Simulated assay, not measured.
Amino acid sequence: MDVIAQLPLWTAWLRASERSETTVRLREYHVRRYLNGLPAETDPLDLEWLVSYLANPRWKAATRRSARASLHIWTTWLHRTGRILSDPLALIPPARAPRSVPRPCPDPIIRKALLAADTRLRAMITLAAEAGLRRGEIATVSRSDVIEEQAGSSLIVHGKGRRERTVPLTAATSDAVQRQFMRVSPELPWLFPSKGQYADTHVQPIRVGELINEALPGRWSAHTLRHRFATEAYRNSHDLLLVQTLMGHSKPETTAIYVGLDTAQARTVVDGISLVA
């Protein structure tokens, strides 16, 4: 069976199950990327090839979980619709999401990345670090999402689960967004139009993450910019509900995971209980 020929049917199934277009594009991207990297005459459903692909040592844990989820949704669909006799990925235990402490990217590292960034990358970085957008939310920003208000610009953000929220933009982020729009054809609605296979739509979220991650050194990533936003927003407001709203979280417990420790305040507390006078 030609599994590549089955992809349009699979993506139609995803849309029919009310997946967002961003999710559909991401899932299809992961599967196509896997299939396009296979040697000729290779069985794409061979367990060893699937395991070898997902074991890529250069991937971060979040990238591996996302790719595995896409491939598993695909193989499960092939199995449940009778196209294959068994689901090979059913043999791989679910990936565990590590419970880690918040890791807000330090401001000096962000500033250095901005100095070396072009117009497009600068807009991506500031939207993550100063507006708290996820990579999928950055990818889908369009002209109609920008709101000009008396106090400044705001942005309608299209979040997970098709939930929308409005986030005020800093002057620097607003300027970066406007400069990027000036580079885009007025006929295109997207802030970051796609240049590849999907030239009629926005850039893929995974590409946004790759570009930002490449601009940051070491362990810092696009997601740590979102941690930075949550930490600074809470430090300035001490209002977890407000930060939850700005982040687009459904639960305050999720927001708390993103808020980094205020080390200056913590040091004052710890110094105050010192046994040494």
Rank of each mutant, 00 (worst) to 15 (best):
R25F: 12
A256T: 08
D239F: 02
T119M: 11
T63C: 00
A12N: 11
L191R: 11
L7D: 08
V269H: 02
A116S: 06
A264Y: 12
L38Q: 13
E18P: 04
N36H: 14
A90E: 11
L211R: 07
V146E: 11
D2T: 06
I273C: 05
L133P: 01
L85Q: 06
M1N: 10
P93V: 09
T173W: 01
A172P: 06
T23Y: 02
L188G: 12
P94A: 15
L169E: 04
T201H: 14
S221Q: 04
R179F: 08
R96M: 07
Y198S: 09
A129M: 10
A123I: 06
R235H: 13
N236Y: 12
A5V: 08
T254A: 05
S221M: 05
R134T: 03
S86K: 12
R235Q: 15
Q197A: 11
L242D: 11
L121F: 07
F181N: 12
K112G: 09
A90T: 08
E21M: 12
S194V: 10
S100D: 10
L261R: 13
T268A: 11
S52F: 09
P104L: 00
L241V: 10
L115D: 14
N36P: 01
V167K: 06
A90G: 11
P186S: 08
H72K: 15
V141Q: 04
A16K: 15
P94Y: 10
S221W: 00
V167I: 06
V51W: 05
E214I: 12
P168Y: 09
V157L: 04
R219L: 13
I4H: 12
I73V: 15
D2E: 11
R163M: 14
G196M: 05
V3A: 04
R165F: 04
V243A: 08
V203F: 00
R111C: 09
T22Y: 09
A176V: 06
V51T: 15
A176C: 09
A199I: 14
E130C: 00
H30R: 11
W13I: 04
L211Y: 10
P102E: 10
N213Y: 01
A230I: 00
P108A: 05
K160S: 13
A139W: 02
T76L: 13
R103P: 02
E187M: 11
L38V: 04
A139T: 03
I138N: 05
